[in-house]
């Protein structure tokens, strides 16, 4: 319950109009800070939701695969330049962002993670590495403005930011593959 309260506080903070408009005023902060924090809100809500609706999670996400697929779909959707633009221009899409990221990405990710086997965890990491890497290259190399609301330089910044995030995932993957944990733990 404590986590859910922290999550609610963070959720309300992120929804506050001055906070939301400040976070959305910089493209990188919009995608790489506000959106991940909304996913974290979902993380924090998960234990409470699982306690309240135990059957739902057992029924619909028994092995974690449906949940992680939902997480992937939502993540990819919010990486589209058009989705970012619409979130700024259309109130309904903005509302969808504040609902989809916590409840359709954060909650399923946390619920699925402990249920998934090593293969699916690796697939998730590879998926994140590739999507962040590709989106990074796309934003860096595209010669035209992809979002109406953000300037070219912001686009390039987001590209570099995504590429560095992909490199972080890649570093984690490499370290996990090369370090034999059984030797140490």
């Amino acid at each position: 319950m404590k986590q859910a309260i922290y999550g609610l506080i963070l959720y309300v903070f992120l929804i506050l109009p001055p906070v939301a408009s400040l976070a959305e005023s910089v493209m990188t902060i919009h995608m790489h800070m506000q959106m991940p924090l909304l996913v974290v809100v979902g993380f924090l809500f998960t234990p409470f939701l699982k306690q309240t609706f135990p059957n739902f999670f057992v029924q619909w996400n028994a092995k974690g695969v449906p949940g992680i697929l939902l997480f992937m779909v939502i993540t990819v959707y919010w990486m589209l330049p058009r989705a970012m633009d619409e979130a700024l221009n259309i109130r309904a899409i903005e509302t969808f962002k504040f609902i989809s990221l916590p409840f359709f990405a954060g909650v399923p990710l946390r619920d699925s993670w402990s249920k998934m086997n090593r293969l699916w965890k690796s697939i998730t990491f590879i998926f994140l590495t590739l999507t962040y890497g590709m989106i990074g290259i796309l934003y860096i190399l595209t010669p035209i403005q992809l979002c109406n609301n953000y300037l070219m330089l912001e686009q390039k910044t987001l590209g570099w930011s995504s590429l560095v995030t992909a490199l972080c995932f890649l570093a984690y993957l490499i370290l996990n593959v090369t370090i034999d944990k059984s030797k140490y733990e």
Binding site: I29, H32, L153, T157, S161, Y172, L175
Partner: peptide, 25 residues
């Protein structure tokens, strides 16, 4: 491993925006 990657991600969050601005502008 987790802490180092987390540190790198936070460093990236903090530095990419101003560094890109300083280099391109």
């Amino acid at each position: 491993t987790v802490w180092i990657i987390l540190m790198l991600a936070i460093v990236a969050m903090a530095y990419v925006i101003p560094l890109v601005d300083m280099i391109f502008n």
